[in-house]
Computed example of a mutant assay.
Amino acid sequence: MKGVVFTEFLEMVEDRFSADMVDHIIDDAQVPHGGVYTAVGTYPHGEIVAMVMALSQRSGTPAPDLIRVFGQHLFGRFVLAYPHFFIGVKDAFHFLSGIENIIHAEVLKLYPDAELPKFIVEHHDPHRLVLLYQSPRHFEDLAEGLMRGCLAHFGEPIHIEREPTPTTAGAHAQRFVLTRQG
C-alpha cells in the first residue's frame, strides 16, 4: 500500500485525536516501520490495519467507522492535492464512474507499483450508479468513506447501499448501489 495512505491516516489521527494518540497507536500496533512512512514508499497494508485496530481500542470507536471517516478525510486531501481530476466533472456519479479508467490510470502513471482496488461500473444512469469493488485487501469501508467524501464534495443527496458479493480469485468484493434522493 502506498505510503501516502499511511501519512494521511496518521495526520487524520493527529487532527481528530492528538499527537499523543498517534504515538500510542504506533506503540500499541508494534508496526515494523515504527510509524515512519514516506508518501511515495510502499508498505504492507497489515500495518495500517494494526494501527486502525489500536485506534479503535483506544478510542472506543468501531474500526469500520474509523476507516469510513478516514476515507472521507482522504477524499478531501485528494481534492486539494489533485484538483485537475475535478476539472469538467459535473457531479459525483460522473466522478465515481471514472475511477477505474481515469483516476486509477493516472495514479498508476505516478506510482506504477501501486496495488489499486478495481471498480467496475455495472450500471450508470442519472438516478443510479452501481459499482463493484474488488480488492485482495478488505477495505470496503475505506471505499465507502471515499464515496461519502465524494458525495459531500459535490453536495449531492445520494444514498449508498452495500451488497456483499462472492469472493473471487482471492479478492474481496462488494457491490455499492448509489441512488439519488429526491
Rank of each mutant, 00 (worst) to 15 (best):
R16W: 11
D20T: 12
S135A: 15
L55V: 03
Y37F: 10
P157Y: 01
Q174G: 04
F86P: 00
E115R: 14
T7S: 04
Y111T: 07
K90H: 09
T165C: 12
E115P: 02
T165E: 13
T42F: 15
E47Q: 11
R58P: 05
H94Q: 11
F78K: 05
P126C: 06
I25L: 11
D65M: 03
K90N: 08
V40I: 10
R137M: 10
L110N: 08
D15A: 15
R175Q: 08
L55M: 10
A19H: 06
V40Y: 07
E140P: 00
G76W: 02
G35N: 02
M51R: 10
L151W: 00
A29K: 09
P164N: 09
H33S: 15
F95C: 07
A29N: 06
Y111K: 02
C150Q: 04
G71D: 04
M21N: 06
A92R: 01
Q30V: 12
H94V: 03
D15V: 14
E144G: 00
L96D: 10
L116E: 09
H123E: 14
V31Y: 01
C150H: 00
A54W: 08
G35E: 11
E156K: 00
A114I: 01
F17V: 01
M12S: 09
R16C: 08
Y37P: 02
P64A: 09
G41W: 10
D113P: 01
I48V: 14
H33Q: 09
L10A: 06
Y133G: 09
A169C: 12
E156C: 00
V130A: 14
T7Q: 04
K118V: 15
P32V: 04
A81T: 08
E156W: 00
M1V: 04
G60M: 09
A39G: 04
T165P: 00
P164A: 11
H159I: 08
P32S: 14
T38E: 15
G3T: 05
G98C: 14
M1G: 13
Y37T: 01
H172N: 12
R68N: 00
R58F: 14
V177F: 01
K118F: 12
F6K: 06
L108Y: 06
E11A: 14
D23K: 14
K109P: 00
G170P: 03
A173P: 11
S18C: 01
V177K: 03
E163K: 04
D15E: 14
S97D: 06
